[in-house]
Write a protein that binds this DNA or RNA. Sequence first.
DNA 1: AATATCACG
DNA 2: GACGTACGTGATATTT
Length: 938
Amino acid sequence: MAFGKGHHLHLIDGSAFIFRAYHALPPLTRKSDGLPIGAVSGFCNMLQRYVEGNAGGDVTHLAVIFDKGSHTFRNDMYDLYKANREAMPEDLRPQIPLTRRATEAFNIACKELAGFEADDIIATLSCQAREAGGQVTIISSDKDLMQLVGDGVEMFDAMKNKRIDRDGVFEKFGVFPDRVVDVQALAGDSVDNVPGAPGIGIKTAALLINEFGSLEDLLDRAEEIKQPKRRQTLVEHRAQIEMSKKLVQLDCGMELDFGLDDLEVKDPDPEVLLGFLTEMEFRSLTKRISDALNVEAPAIPEPEVQAGAGAAPEAPPISADKYECVSDMAALEGWIARAYARGWVAVDTETTGLNEMIADLVGVSLCVEAGEACYIPLTHRGGAAQKDGTEDLFSEKADDSLAAGQIALDAALAALKPMLEDPSILKIGQNMKYDAKIFARYGIEIAPIDDTMLMSYAMHAGEHGHGMDTLAEQYLGHRPIPIKELIGSGKSQITFDRVPIETAVTYAAEDADVTLRLWQLFKPQLHRAKVTRVYETMERPLVPVLAKMEMAGIKVDRQTLSRMSSAFAQKMAGLEAEIHELAGEKFNVGSPAQLGEILFDKMSLEGGKKGKNGKYSTGADVLEDLATEYDLPRRVLDWRQLSKLKSTYTDALQEHINKDTGRVHTSYSIAGANTGRLASTDPNLQNIPVRSEEGRRIREAFVAEPGKVLVSLDYSQIELRILAHVADIEALKQAFRDGQDIHAMTASEMFNVPMEEMTSDVRRQAKAINFGVIYGISGFGLARNLRIPRAEAQGFIDRYFERFPGIKAYMDDTVEFAKKHDRVETLFGRVIHTPEINAKGPRSGFAKRAAINAPIQGTAADIIRRAMVRMPDAIAGLPATMLLQVHDELLFEVDEGSVDPLIAIAKEVMEGAADPVVHLDVPLIVEAGQGHSWAEAH
DNA sequence: AATATCACG
DNA sequence: GACGTACGTGATATTT
């Protein structure tokens, strides 16, 4: 049947795929001969992911379109077209033909035409398909293709997984697709070297086109433009603009030597596809595609094994074949014996929930060798329904009895305990803190441990997440069974103990299997990545320390919170009434959208700025400005503060008080923040209010047990001290040595004000600059922070860099290092990857500032991690417990009589935490506070 | 599920 | 008249 209505053509922009693949991946080479294949590998992965993503979809026709040669008809028109394009990297060139072969191997049509760009072929095919009444999706995010969108033609940004339709084009260009070329002709394009009109960008171009209707009308009526400079530009550059339009206008009427019908989707021939992949020596992709095609993966010969590498045999594919359900003691003893024989074992627990303080153990899985794993079900329930084979939903729900075929919980744990606690057996896990806490509640102190999540974090922070699914997919080419397939999601979600044992075995054993494989892969890599010390001294030993802190929890007084909640509710009701009165109508004060309309439409106050969603911004800074003149915004600010305190703290914290312990137990994620900081969740105890007087009172609810005291120790100005050290600023270092007020000193240096005459306002400004430097300062940001004109802020920054040239040098050096290596490092060797640093557009700005900040924030994070690792031993003799960490603060609970010794010891540990690895040129100073509540202690 | 807002260092 | 801008987090409520 000829292409027409009901058919859907997908066109992949091949060059975009190649470049994306090339830049996204490290320079891989084929093992056997060193042929560069990184881009081909990425290209194949992207194709495979695309095919998977569209399986069962409505795609009927498909082609990958490539550019051919560099000289096109546009060069004949304008010899500078794409002239400033960088030469193709040497190691990419030989990969281009291979991507064509890859496309053919996938049995996807592969098209190109000399003298034309891929964009023109895509344009022609799109037009043909549209005219035939079919649908088109162009897989690309190239803005040059956006002119084609509309009437059944859409684009799809595979990177962002986002469809781009007419509205999407409007968002980008400010005009609909039919006027995109007009805007491009005016704005030009520095990437393609399309000149356009000097000084006019997309924003202005869209404004003009929308005003005059079209480029032709605009040029004809250019004299009507009000702004003199703009008018002159358009008149003077008319010819150049008209040529620019020809350059960006895609050719819809090319003669092609093939038709739409030649692009029909075809299944790949497994032999051809796998043949190509094996030839390229793509191991994980070969495996993954073999699985997808349901054929056996062809073997890829291992070239030569490095001497001493252990000659590990290729791991078998991940499958449930050898997963065993352990249902009697003899079998369990067998697995424990295997762990002893090996010296290591991957362990994973299955439980009834995510909160380790509440969840109950349901089963344990073990793996001692890739592919060979077991699951030991312990407390699965609802066995009765399975026995007679009937599905009675009601009785299943009611059936709390243990399912058959399980070892008694206490017997199994008694058998496992010696092995799990044996110092000679390494227990390997993914996010071991979780399992350690579960086991701890059953009286088992699992040790020693290795953690694949933390290994990934040490090597790959900033590159991707470190959850098992991410790692399995990235490094094993395998998608583990999603937990949702077993327990469902949302309201109908069940707990793991309700999952039938047979299903649980394949899921749980797979997790242990995957964990062991990741460990075997990562373990030798730590050294090569030079992060062994980071992992061994700052990640791995932190697991038991955090586990104990989280289990200790902190006492929170429900009564105090409850009283505050009521008080807040009352005040809020009063404010709400006043707000409605002032607004002249009732509305939801908590809705920024409604508030925006009231303020800026109904009351038509100044300063209403709409964001990209057409909504007014009503953030605190906006309201703060309005509050100087009007009452309503002030009331809303007050209401918001109370609303925040009530919902996030005084209400929510009560829900987190554990029934058994009467305390609140947070959970720290070790591998969450890229910089090495911890993050606290469920609840977050690292953002308990302190800055406002009213908020600080919430800390009165965090108390010590009777007879005990809370002690807070925090590093003073740790990040600025680190900055002074790494940037090597003698004046700052000396000021810290002398114990001076660093902000006042900065102000004095910058503004030539003697210290004795320092005003609080000048000091405040200097303080903002000091912090700004740590964040990768910009004139704009500082101006907004200090609410001063931008030029003035820029002046401050210039003067700061003039006075402290080392800081500027440090910032430049750091960015340069990041650009060269795609990563930065802390003083202790923690690696933070900065994959966006060489991106262009606004994202590079973000990446630059992040790169400047990361070594400073990260070094501070390293220091407190080191202190925490040493702390338990240091305070072992004292009746004291470490409870919380808040980035630069540690909170302890200690018997009244031992406050002073605790402060002395903990302070010494914290102040000396950098030693002996790093010797800082500045002293680290820790300040201590104590009291019955956190409010007093801090 | 995304966005806006606001709490902390 | 190009563009968008402090760094790092998590929780909540509203809106889609």
